[in-house]
Nucleic acid binder design. Structure first.
Lengths: 355, 355
DNA sequence: CCCGACTGTGTAAAGGTTTACACGCAACCA
DNA sequence: TGGTTGCGTGTAAACCTTTACACAGTCGGG
């Protein structure tokens, strides 16, 4: 016997709940829930009636109530330093794609490259608004590790330190990437190779400088401190860094940049100064962002596989979420790839190898 | 849908709740809630004790429970066709910034340029996982309007049709943008101006074509159908479109592209063919993405103010959220801005102000 | 004919908050 | 002194689900 609905004269549009469906269909809310979630047992007859009533009423389940009860939100968060940075965009896109496939939504968090923001995001995980987090911290110190140890929701970090197994992570050996780029330049006979690095207090900054130094040592070249300048990983940072290089008595034979954005800034500054690339100076970047492919000359770069790292991170996280969190942390390492284009090979243009 | 993890015995490590704090501090949960939310009345003494206990226990409020009760999630969603498109990235960045300032989180939804995805996002608003939505649909037809009319949460659309007041929206007159670009080219004496448009079934596609036609009519030039080609708003789309133009008996004097991405593709193809820009052909794009500024030659373009539109949309939405939803829908219109750079001025004058 | 198994369903208890309402008490005023 | 006020606090009812448990009926086997 269907009870009389008690919701008539309320001026507000009350949300349709399973209670409404239950009343209308003459069953209990438990049955409605079972039918709608296809769980437990119910007869063919009830199934039809409940589904019909739900459709009729335009029912939509309330996510908050569901999440509260099931203790999972079907949301995962991505925290990056700069939403506009092409590298993170590529990552975000890849991640968005895989989490969407699995029915999760992506919450975009921006840290503005501030450590305290990163920490506070880690802490806010306790508020349970997401099931898991992918974070790509710029620095990765004790504060991070300490927070990570306390967090109870799965986290995967993109970046971090190699061999650190305190949490799932995906790592790219960017020092090796730098060495690959250096090999490429050294092989062409260049010995005066400038290095436009990022801020030295960031992880990428220190790691990549290390790669640069190693490559020089390996080839018996002493590091000229004047050839190492710093930018902030942005276009204008590269632009200013190039200005510093132009002040040197002689032009270096090649310039290696710690990321593509700075390389493009350098390219622009060099062009303004009438310096031709690659004829006068060879130029190499890192990241393989889309702009590198379409710049003129097309930029030689080292792909750090941003999209792939994003994809892997998402899969790692999803794995934690669906199967247990019992297994020990995993670290997936991807290998950078050198992509030779126009900006670093002088002889392909004018036919003459650099002396 | 995410797979159900088989009732993962999460018995231990219970979440710290206000009940725990209440017991420990010897007060009721209501008092705890009042103190923690700084609402209602409580003595200085209780304040101290509750706060101390909360800190001691490492309490973090449960978002789901709070949202369920308060009927608001502190989340807003952004739905765009392509997360990787620089225009949407700029929008997203601006939006993220303002919503973050107001304590909201941003959920990123991608529609893959499919209408059914857009509709289903609109429908899913009923599930209440966000407080509001910003959507930038590629097409904007009856299906959209019908759904929008039913939706009970505030939505603001970026794009849409001018003068449509069924919902908050921010609109840019891109037809006018096209006319501005055309004026710029016509003023220099060019009459053979090719137009690389987007797909004609999209809103931007039709609108911009319209602007192109109007400008021609205004100047008494008959439209040469061979000069209108189509791309898909991507780099490679522009590349292929340029190929078509190169097949024509004579080169046009100028090429106007419906967006910057295609313009850069055109630029690349022209360079491959040995055509110089701007000496042989003038080139103009639209959108003013960052790459336009650093390309070589720097691309003349029409700024469609993506970031600003994002900012405005976010503010519109936030306005709805905080003050009432009583007021009638508003439509904010922004005016495009011509940005003259190198690619369109043969006489090598750098920069320049819009007329 | 009884017992166990199974099937379909309902009852009620979470899940963690916010908040309307009520209550006890001190202070104040007439 | 009695009544009002205001303060600080507690009780309990939501918010909307999911789900453990119980119950009533049916059916088959012994």
């Amino acid at each position: 016997m269907p009870k009389q609905s008690k919701s008539h004269s309320n001026g507000f549009e009350r949300q349709v709940t399973i209670v409404d469906i239950a009343e209308r269909a003459g069953v209990s809310i438990a049955t409605v829930s079972r039918v709608l979630n296809q769980t437990g047992r119910y007869s063919e007859e009830t199934l039809k009636r409940v589904k019909a009533t739900a459709a009729e009423l335009g029912y939509a389940p309330n996510f908050m109530a569901k999440s509260l009860k099931k203790r999972q939100t079907e949301q995962i968060a991505l925290a990056v330093a700069d939403v506009g940075n092409p590298v993170y965009v590529a990552m975000a896109k890849a991640i968005q794609q895989v989490v969407k496939e699995h029915g999760y939504r992506l919450v975009l968090l921006s840290t503005e490259a501030r450590v305290d923001e990163e920490i506070s995001i880690l802490q806010s995980l306790a508020k349970q608004y997401v099931d898991g987090l992918i974070i790509s911290p710029l620095s990765y110190g004790e504060a991070h590790k300490k927070q990570l140890a306390q967090v109870k929701r799965p986290v995967v970090v993109i970046g971090g330190s190699p061999g650190d197994m305190s949490v799932d992570s995906v790592y790219v050996d960017s020092a090796k990437g730098v060495r690959m780029a250096m090999e490429h330049l050294l092989d062409q006979g260049f010995s005066q190779i400038a290095f436009v690095n990022g801020p030295s207090e960031t992880v990428p900054g220190t790691v990549r400088l290390h790669g640069y130094e190693e490559a020089l040592i390996e080839h018996g070249i002493v590091l000229d401190p004047r050839l190492v300048v710093h930018g902030d990983f942005t276009l204008s940072g590269g632009h200013m860094a190039a200005a510093k290089l132009l002040e040197l008595p002689g032009l270096p034979q090649a310039v290696l940049c710690a990321n593509d954005l700075m390389a493009l800034g350098v390219l622009r500054r060099l062009r303004e100064a009438g310096v031709r690339v690659p004829e006068d100076v060879a130029l190499v970047g890192m990241d393989d962002i889309e702009q590198a492919r379409i710049s003129s000359p097309a930029l030689t770069t080292v792909s750090l596989l941003a999209a792939e790292r994003g994809r892997i991170a998402a899969e790692l996280l999803l794995g934690r979420l669906t199967s247990g969190s019992a297994e020990p942390p995993r670290q997936v390492t991807v290998t950078p790839r050198l992509i030779v284009r126009e900006s670093s090979v002088a002889y392909s243009v004018n036919g003459g190898a650099p002396a």
